[in-house]
Nucleic acid binder design. Structure first.
Length: 506
RNA sequence: GCGCCUCUAGCUCAAUGGUAGAGCAUCGGCCUUUUAAGCCGCUGGUUCCGGGUUCGAAUCCCGGGGGGCGCACCA
């Protein structure tokens, strides 16, 4: 609706009603300017308090308490105005911490100032100064001794009670969504804190945050179709990265030992409740760790984050209650398929057998053995995994970058962590044998020829890097958006991405 | 890409094929402890777009667009 092609105030684009609403606000702007107040000239306001802080500090204040003397200043958006005639106004001011009621009285401010306040519209930014009291109805309230107009809102805000509900408009105009829907703002504040906490957690354990290129000659390290772009000066075709894996492992070869990147990944795929074309992934690598140490690290990080956000080990996700109490459940890949699906390892590892199983499950036949395994697992096991569960000992078939177990060559030292019915982490002991890596890349070339376009062309320089020697290393990938979904109880990835991709209008 | 649902005033929603309505917001009036303030009054429409059927279409049909959900694809 509002991805406007024309400037927003072009009246030809507006409905008559909206044009009227905007005109009324502009009239108030003009009236303010006539009184020498230009809301858009304000540059600074000295804030001494925030809404929620005051609410906490004065928690014990009652309506009978003696008058307070301490003066506070806060700034925010005017979100509701209740006028009691021309001489008294109650209103709500929202700042980044929450809401505080203010009380504007002619007895305190004088006639002219109250008349000036009367020119404000919902959505305007103001700075208010005064002392607090508790109203008869029980709300902490700032008695306004003075105020400043800090900015003007010229566009009509959504319904004060229902807020903005239309999902499309919420995503396209997230600024309105954030301004009026408190839960939305809370989700993104939580996201930011979760990401900061993840960084702190990794930094504390000696990991270096590294930044590797987003644009690459060949996007590798995962199976996905990349976005293509182009460098003009070099007349060079480039891919946007689909993983940070290969470059981070180059850093391990280079001796940095403990590295991570918390970065944006781009995959040219469909969009649904759990997929956005750009998303954020944590990849982390630790030299001299096996997948077992990584499992411990992973478990510690997740239970720490759950405690950080929820104050305990449990959280509610949709209809489910999920416990992140350590230790998490641990099961072997083939064991769990046997347990939940009665499927045998030998049959799953046999190309003919795997397609027979797909048929019996009435799944569409996959193009490759590996894809078929993934589909079967997704159907049989994922729906059962609510509490966090490490599924380990993955088949080498679907793990082209992981090290084989010495005593079982069909299986690699890899796990995926599932919770809330989807994958939350993927980790393995990294393959560091250049000959094995070369052979697996060559095998992938065959798969690619068979029609699996998701498989990237090999990055031969990566094999070269391994030839210089990489220490034994464990690596992990964590989809941050999905983790935030679980931690903030959001059912769609678009609810945890500020500006999810939308088709253009018109 | 396929299927189902959806799009009505600035916002939230009504309207069996028969004059498009309400609440909030806006605008005007009354009110110095309200908090979805209250009371009185006035405004406000390209019913997503384009065709068609019909005496008559927000409603039915066809085509197109946006979004949501599911499937497929995919971490």
């Amino acid at each position: 609706m509002d991805d406007r092609r024309l400037p927003p105030d072009d009246s030809e684009e507006l409905g008559r009603r909206e044009a009227e609403l905007r005109a009324a606000r502009r009239a108030n702007l003009d009236a303010l300017r006539e009184r020498g107040i230009d809301p858009f000239k304000a540059t600074h306001f000295e804030i001494t308090a925030h809404a929620t802080d005051l609410t906490e500090v004065y928690a014990t204040l009652t309506a009978d308490s003696p008058p307070q003397t301490e003066v506070h200043s806060l700034a925010g958006r005017l979100m509701a105005v209740r006028k009691m005639g021309k001489k008294a106004i109650w209103a709500d001011v929202w700042d980044r911490t929450g809401r505080l009621q203010i009380y504007v009285q002619e007895d305190v401010l004088g006639h002219d100032a109250v008349a000036l306040f009367d020119l404000l519209d919902i959505g305007d930014f103001i700075g208010v100064t005064g002392t607090v009291f508790r109203s008869k109805k029980g709300d902490l309230t700032l008695r306004v001794a003075s105020f400043e107009v800090l900015s003007k809102s010229l566009a009509p805000p959504p319904d004060k009670w229902h807020g903005l509900v239309d999902v499309e408009k919420r995503y396209r105009q997230r600024y309105i969504d954030l301004a009026v829907n408190e839960q939305v703002r809370e989700t993104f504040i939580k996201r930011s804190k979760i990401v900061a906490e993840i960084r702190r957690f990794c930094d504390e354990r000696g990991f270096l945050e590294c930044e590797t290129p987003v644009m690459l000659h060949v996007a590798g390290g995962a199976t996905a179709r990349p976005f293509r772009t182009h460098h003009h000066a070099l007349d060079l075709a480039l891919d946007m990265r689909i993983a940070t894996e290969l470059n981070l492992k180059r850093l391990i070869v280079g001796g940095l030992e403990r590295v991570y990147e918390l970065g944006r990944i781009f995959r040219n795929e469909g969009i649904d409740r759990t997929h956005n074309p750009e998303f954020t992934m944590l990849e982390l690598y630790a030299a001299y760790w096996s997948v077992h140490e990584m499992m411990d690290f992973n478990e510690e990080m997740f239970s720490h984050l759950v405690r950080h956000v929820h104050g305990g080990d449990e959280l509610v996700y949709g209809e489910r209650r999920i416990s992140f109490k350590r230790p998490f459940k641990r099961v072997k890949y083939f064991d769990v398929l046997a347990e939940y699906g009665g499927l045998k390892r030998d049959e799953l590892l046999d190309p003919a057998g795997v397609f027979r199983i797909q048929e019996s499950l009435r799944l569409p036949r996959s193009q490759t053995h590996g894809q078929a395994l993934d589909k079967i697992f997704e159907r049989i096991v994922e729906p059962r995994l609510v509490d966090p569960t490490f599924v380990h000992d993955y088949p080498v078939l679907i793990s082209p970058l992981a090290k084989r177990k010495p005593d079982d060559l069909d299986v690699v030292d890899r796990y995926e962590l599932f919770g809330a019915n989807f994958e939350l982490a993927n980790a393995f002991t990294e393959l560091n044998d250049p000959d094995d890596q070369r052979a697996r890349f060559e095998a992938q070339i065959q798969e690619r020829r068979k029609g699996d376009e998701e498989i990237p062309p090999p990055d031969w320089d990566f094999v070269n890097a391994l030839e210089y020697g990489m220490p034994p290393t464990a690596g992990i990938g964590i989809g941050i958006d999905r983790l935030v979904m679980v931690l903030t109880d959001n059912a769609s990835i678009h609810e945890v991405i500020l500006f999810p991709l939308q088709r253009p209008l018109g």
